[in-house]
């Protein structure tokens, strides 16, 4: 009896493999966010830069400390998902937010939003939005104080109270501005659509420039790193629902295009709702998920007490994701029961 030839590996097929792995996907998400980050720094100066650095750093550091036991070589932090969480959280924050609040929100995002569920792939809610929801509940004033924009000339000028010390009441002096949605809701004053598209408006770091976010999303969709069904579904639902309301009573309801381009909708639809972990995997489930978000966004914006509802809409639909997946299993090839559609 010959012994097994040690030269040969015992493994199972397939031996062909697509080159893209999970860390590569995370890297590409970060690449797609680079233009958005640059725009944020251009509009809001060093405050924006510090916010992004603090959020990303806190998320990565905590994940490394709590999982890798000091061994960087095989720490999950290397897969890049913690960095994505940090960047996305920073992009949802107002530019003048004190850094200690940002660090606290990042800690909640990574620990309560992700690690306590079991790490990458296990969390129910989008971690960045979990962190932001926490901040919104704790510091409602700081989270809704929007600084006006400056250009490169104002780079070194701190917005708001970036360097405030922890637990001391930050000072928000008179230089705050209303976001387009707040102006619409509370003053019934629309903003120019061109300004919305290019981002020359007050708002959080990443919600200002719709066009850069869409470009990043288009790149990821083209490379198949995010699923196009979700943003397309959200945009379609928001536009149709808002336009229908606007047709019924133009004096009371904002038009569809204004809704599409303002607030965190584009950022949320392209980068938050498409978080694969907390969104459905089935094609029909993605449509359902997207429609749910679209409807909730308009309900909150038009009928709720808040000017903005993207965060809560996405978090609510995150909670519904396991159920959606269960009821939208695709009908298989040769299914005897043809009622189950395929939805794509």
């Amino acid at each position: 009896m010959t012994r097994r030839d040690p030269q040969f590996v015992i493994a199972t097929p397939p031996f062909a493999k697509r080159a893209v792995d999970t860390p590569a996907i995370m890297r590409h998400v970060i690449y797609a966010l680079v233009p958005v980050m640059i725009a944020a720094v251009y509009f809001f100066g060093v405050s924006a830069l510090l916010l992004i650095a603090v959020c990303t750093g806190t998320c990565m550091l905590l994940e490394w400390l709590l999982t890798g036991r000091g061994n960087l070589g095989n720490s999950p932090v290397r897969d890049g998902s913690a960095a994505v969480t940090g960047i996305l959280l920073a992009l949802t924050l107002p530019p003048g937010l004190p850094l200690w609040m940002a660090a606290l929100g990042s800690a909640v995002a990574i620990v309560f939003g992700k690690l306590l569920f079991g790490g990458l792939g296990q969390n129910v809610f989008n971690p960045s939005l979990t962190g932001r929801a926490f901040l919104q509940a704790c510091f409602p004033v700081a989270l809704t104080t929007w600084s006006p924009q400056g250009g490169l000339g104002a780079f070194l000028e701190m917005r708001g109270d970036t360097l405030a010390l922890p637990l001391l009441r930050p000072v928000f002096d008179g230089i705050s501005a209303a976001t387009p949605l707040a102006r619409m809701k509370f003053e019934s004053e629309p903003t120019d659509l061109g300004a919305l598209l290019f981002g020359t408006i007050p708002g959080s770091l990443g919600e200002t420039s719709a066009i850069l976010i869409l470009l990043g999303g288009a790149y990821l969709g083209w490379r198949r790193f995010l699923n196009w069904r979700i943003p397309v579904g959200i945009f379609a639902t928001v536009y149709l629902f808002a336009s229908a309301l606007n047709m019924i009573d133009p004096g009371r309801f904002t038009d569809g295009l204004h809704h599409l381009l303002s607030g965190g909708l584009v950022l949320g639809a392209v980068f938050m709702a498409t978080d694969p972990v907390s969104s459905p995997v089935t094609p029909r489930g993605m449509w359902l998920f997207a429609c749910g978000i679209g409807v909730l966004v308009i309900l909150i914006r038009e009928f709720g007490g808040l000017p903005e509802g993207v965060m809560y809409a996405i978090l609510l639909m995150n909670a519904a994701t396991p159920l959606i997946d269960r009821i939208t299993q695709p009908g298989i090839y040769g299914a005897v029961d043809h009622r189950a559609g395929r939805g794509d």
Binding site: N227, P276, T282
Partner: peptide, 12 residues
């Protein structure tokens, strides 16, 4: 190296 499933739906 095996990573956790991120539910990207590429397999579907």
């Amino acid at each position: 190296q095996e990573y956790p499933c991120i539910r990207c739906a590429a397999c579907l």
